[in-house]
Design a protein around this nucleic acid. Structure first.
Lengths: 128, 128
DNA sequence: GTAATACATTACTGTATGGTAATACTTTTG
DNA sequence: CAAAAGTATTACCATACAGTAATGTATTAC
């Protein structure tokens, strides 16, 4: 039974579910998507399940939705995601740097995969 | 019901619990600690509860334990933590940089709090 | 208008899991 | 040796929550 519930706490619970993390990945990779487009990526789940996940994500502020016709277009809210997790990430900052560097080295000699490349918001500034 | 279960998946589940995150913080801040020392930080929980959390953390590889006398000394395994989460963090790399910068600016003019300062392993290299 | 499409909401279910209490195990102390 | 200290393990309970199915609500198509 949880007592404390700051904002980063809610975020960690949101990220604990793999489906929700994949939804975030999809929105980051392909830009804003409708519920149907998202749901089609999860053939093993019924649509209402996706809808519920989207509600959780919205409640956490990491996605937002706008209506267009009868479609609901969901988009990533990267600032909310970053602002919520940055304090925690910063706490272990020194530990990431080495691991991220290793990843970058691997990506350099290997192909260029496993990296989200969003539509807009491409203010590349690269950690480290 | 979860189907996929790669290593970062297990990590996100581990981090979803605030008690476990605090345990990691304590080990990072104060270095290796015994179960009793850790448990004393959670007066609201019974000792066996802490023990169970420590088992989860060990199963995830983010802490390790060595016996000294009748004490079990737990220590953080930062590499496992970093290696497991780095891929995910790297995916959203560009989003963190801005937020982390803002945090750093705040920390500079404010006091120097909310930052884990571990005993050893102080290879400061600072993201960004 | 009616039907169909696209989601949201509600009610319900099963399972995972955080918590406690009790017991067992190992090591030190007397 | 027995007792105590420090953890681990087990059994159990309660709750959270992911999932489904069914129903409700807009919006577009016919």
């Amino acid at each position: 039974m949880q007592v404390m519930s700051n904002s980063s706490d809610a975020l960690f619970r949101i990220l604990a579910d793999p489906t929700r993390r994949i939804i975030l990945d999809l929105l980051a990779e392909r830009g804003p998507l409708s519920v149907g487009q998202l749901a089609s990526e999860f053939p093993e789940l019924v649509a209402s399940g996706i809808s519920k996940h989207l509600m959780s994500l919205r409640a956490g502020g990491v996605v937002s939705a706008t209506r267009r016709g009868r479609l609901q277009i969901y988009r990533l809210e990267p600032d909310a995601l970053a602002a919520g997790l940055a304090p925690w990430i910063a706490k272990y900052e020194q530990y990431w740097s080495a691991a991220l560097e290793r990843l970058r080295d691997l990506a350099q000699e290997g192909h260029g995969k496993d990296k989200v490349t969003p539509k807009k918001n491409v203010r590349r500034k690269s950690l480290k």
